[in-house]
Design a protein around this nucleic acid. Structure first.
Length: 245
DNA sequence: TGCCATGTTAAACT
DNA sequence: GAGTTTAACATGGC
């Protein structure tokens, strides 16, 4: 569930709760859940993989990590693993096995909103500057850097690198300018394809690299390797995906 | 049934 | 202290 586009789907689904007052809150989140009761939802926001429920006094930050999930207006009684349940006069929101934090600071000051690849104000030139600032980083790590490409996860990483035929272990400082342009463009572009395919329940069908065994372009076997400092799975074709040295 | 994964953080090390 | 590696968390699918 966790990559940026999935959070967009959640954000859209939760919009009807904007303006509603929390009648009751439940769950085992290690925060003061009682303080939510009686507060109105001012806004629903997201930044990359983070989801925010802005209340009158504070903001609830939810991060789904690897296994988190949610349900909306679920009829059956939520099980005991419920992390946070927000009950309204009509409907309810349930969040499971996720990280829940209360934010008291001003949200706008906390994140670089132009770094969110799904955002209307996504700024490719800023991403390029940030990449220039870390020339020794492998591109597989750079793509997963939430300060540069907020919302990009491991699936998006693998798909983007395959689309632009770039080897995950390429050092960013060695990548030609045109390829950097393609990298930044596809980080956003594929994320929107991800969003649309996810909505249509056909995301996996379109994977060209992630979890694939064979390169569709040359028919040679894919390499599966835990690359970079992030040690995340990379699926790539050593024949087709160029490594600049 | 054991292994693995769309992720992050904090503790434990060099 | 900085930078790194490791451990921890938690759930569902194969």
């Amino acid at each position: 569930m966790p990559e940026g586009p999935s959070i967009i789907i959640l954000k859209e689904a939760v919009q009807p709760f904007k303006g509603q007052t929390i009648q009751n809150a439940s769950g085992n989140a290690g925060v003061d859940i009682g303080s939510f009761k009686g507060q109105k939802i001012r806004d629903i926001r997201s930044w990359g993989k983070q989801f925010f429920i802005c209340l009158e006094k504070t903001t609830i930050r939810i991060h789904f990590l690897l296994f988190g999930s949610y349900s909306i207006n679920e009829q059956t009684k939520p099980d005991k693993s419920l992390r946070l349940g927000l009950h309204f006069s009509h409907g309810a929101l349930y969040f499971y096995s996720c990280s829940v934090r209360i934010i008291r600071e001003e949200l706008d000051a906390m994140y670089d909103w132009k770094a969110d690849v799904m955002s209307d104000i996504w700024d490719p030139s800023r991403a390029r500057e940030k990449l220039k600032a870390v020339p020794g980083t492998m591109v597989c790590d750079a793509l997963l850097d939430q300060e540069i490409f907020s919302g990009v996860g491991n699936i998006i990483k693998n798909e983007v690198l395959y689309r632009i035929m770039l080897h995950p272990e390429t050092i960013t400082g060695n990548i030609p300018s045109k390829k950097i342009t393609a990298l930044i463009r596809e980080a956003r572009n594929y994320s929107f394809d991800f969003l649309n395919w996810k909505k249509a329940f056909e995301l996996k069908k379109h994977w060209l690299a992630h979890n694939r065994k064979i390169c569709l372009r040359c028919n040679l076997p894919f390499i599966k390797k835990y690359c970079g400092k992030t040690h995340r799975r990379s699926f790539f074709c050593e024949n087709c995906q160029v490594k600049y040295n």
